[in-house]
């Protein structure tokens, strides 16, 4: 058995002459929690549907444990899906919904009953066996959908924005629960979301997608700390992205100051994108700052203040636990660790 459960090889997909996926190459490891992250229309759901068998790639191959399953219909794949908006069967009660897959496999009644019961326990819905689907809250329907998929003991569980319809508090709770279930059962999860925070919280691996391309694959920490390009930096967390020029290795000019940085290997005088996280900008008295700026606005965000600070024609977003009043002149320091240099992406 291979170490990789699913392999997408050179997968492209077009719908009515629109290219939705452009040459996707991706492998999914056994038992990992992998998240496809990106804005709507980036191709993440299409990728999931290709793995589930609901779409066939226009070109390319899908491998499952090394075997080509590109043209295998969904009902013959060892993969189950939790759909956006759940897609529970409205004319069946909770128990019948969960038992649907088992009934097809012609397993004995007793075993089915046993398994359904265990599943209801796992998703905290004991006692809901005979309830109709309509009488459940969104969160409960969500749990039924998860139970209905998991009861079939799939090798891989696909989840298409499963928490999208829930309110914030419920969503946070379900994130933790899902992660627990995944770890408890040791199943590979492939999770689609546009919520970067959700992705960072739950995933072992994040695949950032945009316009049918994979932008970056990595662990949450890698993706947050070392975004590969300006799109990823901007999409994952908040960022200041400014134009800069590499003077030489480890020296970059942006925002009206020449900073030391940790990046090298760029061409001399190459134009680059410089990414700085708002929380990495340190405010100091004006005479100690590398840059001087004036506070334009202050918003209280709970844990920190968000300040917009203008300096040499650039507006910096700064997060700080200390508030500087509007119109104060402050000093800005950015240290080499916190400067991320990226090659300019040619945006069409």
């Amino acid at each position: 058995m291979s170490y990789e459960t699913i392999n997408l090889i050179d997968v492209s997909k077009t719908f009515d002459d629109t290219l939705v996926l452009d040459n996707i190459n991706l492998y999914i490891r056994r038992n990992e929690f992998l998240t496809l992250l990106g804005p709507s229309g980036c191709g993440k759901t299409t990728t999931l549907r290709i793995i589930g068998g609901f779409e066939e790639p226009t070109t390319g191959k899908v491998l499952f444990e090394g075997k080509d399953i590109t043209h295998v219909p969904p009902y013959k794949r060892k993969v189950n899906t939790v759909f956006q908006r759940y897609a529970l069967f409205p004319h069946m009660n909770v128990e019948e919904n969960i038992a649907f897959g088992l009934n097809i496999k012609k397993i004995s009644k007793n075993i089915i009953e046993e398994k359904v019961k265990n599943m209801l326990g796992l998703v905290n819905l004991r006692g809901f066996e005979k309830r109709t689907v309509d009488s459940l809250s969104g969160g409960q329907q969500q749990r039924v959908a998860i139970a209905r998929a998991l009861v079939n003991e799939p090798e891989v569980l696909l989840l298409d924005e499963p928490l999208g319809a829930l309110d914030l508090k419920l969503r946070k709770g379900m994130q933790i629960e899902l992660k627990n279930i995944q770890q408890k059962l040791g199943i590979t999860f492939v999770y689609v979301t546009h919520d970067q925070e959700e992705a960072l919280t739950m995933s072992d691996t994040i695949v950032v997608m945009n316009e049918g391309h994979i932008q970056q694959i990595g662990s949450p920490i890698d993706i947050y700390n070392e975004p590969k390009n300006a799109f990823v930096a901007d999409f994952i967390g908040e960022s200041n992205i400014v134009n800069g020029i590499m003077i030489e290795d480890y020296v970059v000019d942006f925002g009206g100051y020449i900073f030391r940085c940790l990046d090298s290997g760029f061409g001399e005088k190459e134009k680059v994108d410089v990414v700085v996280r708002p929380e990495d900008i340190k405010l100091v008295p004006p005479e100690q700052g590398m840059l001087k700026g004036r506070v334009l606005s202050v918003i209280f965000k709970g844990v920190h203040y968000e300040m917009m600070i203008e300096s040499n024609g650039i507006i910096w977003k700064v997060h700080s636990t200390l508030m500087e009043p509007v119109d104060t002149i402050v000093g800005i320091n950015i240290f080499p660790d916190d400067i991320h240099i990226m090659k300019k992406v040619m945006v069409s």
Partner: peptide, 27 residues
């Protein structure tokens, strides 16, 4: 009808005809 119902049935192992009989027709 929720357009994903049919796909959900296929996903759970139903052949297209079984999915039609057990899921679409009752709906």
């Amino acid at each position: 009808m929720n357009k994903h119902l049919y796909e959900a049935a296929l996903d759970l192992g139903a052949t297209p005809f079984y999915a039609f009989r057990k899921v679409i027709l009752p709906e």
